[in-house]
Amino acid sequence: MKKIFSSFTADQDIEKLIGYLLRYGVITASLIVFIGGIIYLHQYQHSSIPAYHTFVGEQAGFTTISQIFSGVGTFNAKGIIQLGVLVLIATPILRIFFSLIGFILEKDRLYILITFVVLSVMMFSIFGGLKV
């Protein structure tokens, strides 16, 4: 693949971009989680841990994008941590978008289609109402 890429500098740039995206995505997510974590510890350090041996699920909150953002808006520690979680999960999904752009630049029809299928599966997973 390197050999094919070396003849098109634009595509090599996309590959480099994907590398950067993955790295900075993880770094950003960790920083947000770290900030949220510090606030979380500051607020709750002396309380005893929640009953993690029983599963609460959705009722614990911060399971939707709007809940997470309203949590961040009110400076809620758990909301901020979940925002970091969201950024972490979004990183590989964004990577598929970048791959798609790369294959479009390369005019590789087969791989534009393949990447599009993967993206569709991902979108189905997000918006398909599979949470039940």
Partner: peptide, 19 residues
């Protein structure tokens, strides 16, 4: 990530553990 988006909506990701 494909299954994480589903599990996030189901409340599998607890901030106190995730952090």
């Amino acid at each position: 990530a494909a299954s994480a988006v589903v599990y996030l909506q189901r409340g599998y990701m607890d901030p106190g553990i995730a952090f």
